[in-house]
Design a protein around this nucleic acid. Sequence first.
DNA 1: GTGAACAACATAGTTAACCTAGTTGGCATA
DNA 2: TATGCCAACTAGGTTAACTATGTTGTTCAC
Lengths: 119, 119
Amino acid sequence: MVKKTGQPAYLQIADDLRKQVHGGSLAPGSLLPSTAQLAEQYDASLSVVKMAVGILRNEGLLIGQQGKGVFVQDQEPSESEQLPAMDLVSEVMELRTAVQDLSERLARVESTLSERSDR
Amino acid sequence: MVKKTGQPAYLQIADDLRKQVHGGSLAPGSLLPSTAQLAEQYDASLSVVKMAVGILRNEGLLIGQQGKGVFVQDQEPSESEQLPAMDLVSEVMELRTAVQDLSERLARVESTLSERSDR
DNA sequence: GTGAACAACATAGTTAACCTAGTTGGCATA
DNA sequence: TATGCCAACTAGGTTAACTATGTTGTTCAC
């Protein structure tokens, strides 16, 4: 699968995966093949696949969950990353609402947990 | 040099170098120590240093020239606007990753809870 | 039926080794 | 002096192996 162009294999794989995500071939939230499967699919070693996934993980395009797999980040169409220097004020406001949301959800989870432990 | 925080070594080194560049300790156009020197300096293996440099290279912050060395990209003070205060920017970035992490963990907890209540 | 124990599989991080290729400086030879 | 060769150093790419840790499914004992 990896062509013998000048580009290194890990970049070729990263580009290919990126295209699949942007092209819709890999839907947001969907699970990627495992590292070993990708390695076989691209006829590459485990290491280069891990490097490719690492790049996209660093870009925020993919998220890896230890023990489960690598998923396509679904809230991608938002800004956050593309804009080089997005203004800090709105960023902080988003973070504040995100923290509030997390706080409420966590409170719910905690209450359900305490109810179950009570009985 | 690499502290035993939860963060992996290659990210610690990348962050440190990023701060040195943004803080002016590493001037644009200047030459970084060689990979081997950095490895010794951070008391890390060659591989993690190469990973750290690779990240910053991918970000466009550094440029590597085979046979010569790794240099700080100089045309970085680009358009957009004055970065207000680099400490705030990195602070916000850290908060964003922290919120993402919390969000993922909470989503996992919530999903397991809903699954159990379904059965 | 429940729960503990275990095996299999997953990502993640780290290390070491090897190869390729570009740069530089020294040195011997023409 | 000028040319060519060579050693040393550089980044970059690739591979393999190991450890750590999390998830999932099965099996077995209670």
